[in-house]
Design a protein around this nucleic acid. Sequence first.
DNA 1: TTCATAATGTTGCTATAGCAACTATTTTGC
DNA 2: GCAAAATAGTTGCTATAGCAACATTATGAA
Lengths: 139, 139
Amino acid sequence: MKFNDYISIIIHQTDLALTGHIKSKLDALNIAPEQNLIMLLLWEQDGLSQNEIAEKLDKDKTNIARMLFNLEKKGFIRRDISQSDRRSLRVYLTDKGQELGKQVVPITEEFNRIVCQGITEDELYVVRGILGKMRRNVE
Amino acid sequence: MKFNDYISIIIHQTDLALTGHIKSKLDALNIAPEQNLIMLLLWEQDGLSQNEIAEKLDKDKTNIARMLFNLEKKGFIRRDISQSDRRSLRVYLTDKGQELGKQVVPITEEFNRIVCQGITEDELYVVRGILGKMRRNVE
DNA sequence: TTCATAATGTTGCTATAGCAACTATTTTGC
DNA sequence: GCAAAATAGTTGCTATAGCAACATTATGAA
């Protein structure tokens, strides 16, 4: 079996190409792609705990904690100890974080349009289904 | 636009799930997934330069250099200065590196089978085509 | 109630990923 | 043939990704 026969390698390389592209688009706004995922969640629903964010993103809580630390350093969010559970940190958007959304959303939506150029809705539906199946296959 | 509407996020999360799965399978052999990609190349063709490896994998030469450093430390390869170009390092498999292939290849091919369970050849063909188109869309 | 167990988040580790700046060589242009 | 430009690798930086071990706090069971 050769290199490009492995579907996982194709997926990995596609992921790197896409991530690299959006990274360069977001650079000017001082936000990294994965940090932006967290912001995407917060723009939808403010006040999530670190743990809730990790679960929604299906990521290790370690990285989430570090990304939130950086987002706090950049002034996009703040973290307060939860009243009901003193182990837990609640994450809130700052004004700067709210503002960021207005600039970022057009960029990411334009990015999605570029990625999907020349691809039909039906094809996208099939791809989503198959990628989902692959994920379940390795769970 | 919500979270799961971004096809790039779906691709990214699929990539993470697949990479994590093969990582755990290869752990016992003391080889990491991306290190294994380099080995895959070398089992096909020994004596590549670092630069050639970077181009074939479409990756930054920096990482390739560091991964090769680690592969050398593990004893799977050695690096010799090229006779024809003293800037260039040629990468050669050691006996241990050759041996590794016999153990790794069955694992990675089984992995590919698991990933593709319940997915037809036609569907895979479509997915490959669309992922390729996405890559070209962001170039 | 109190002690074992859960959950939340942090620190330290390794591995990937790519940019910028650097050294050392080789190739090119004149 | 020599200076300028290009190429091959390295070092240092930031960001992601996940594991193990840990401290702190909360919950559950006896």
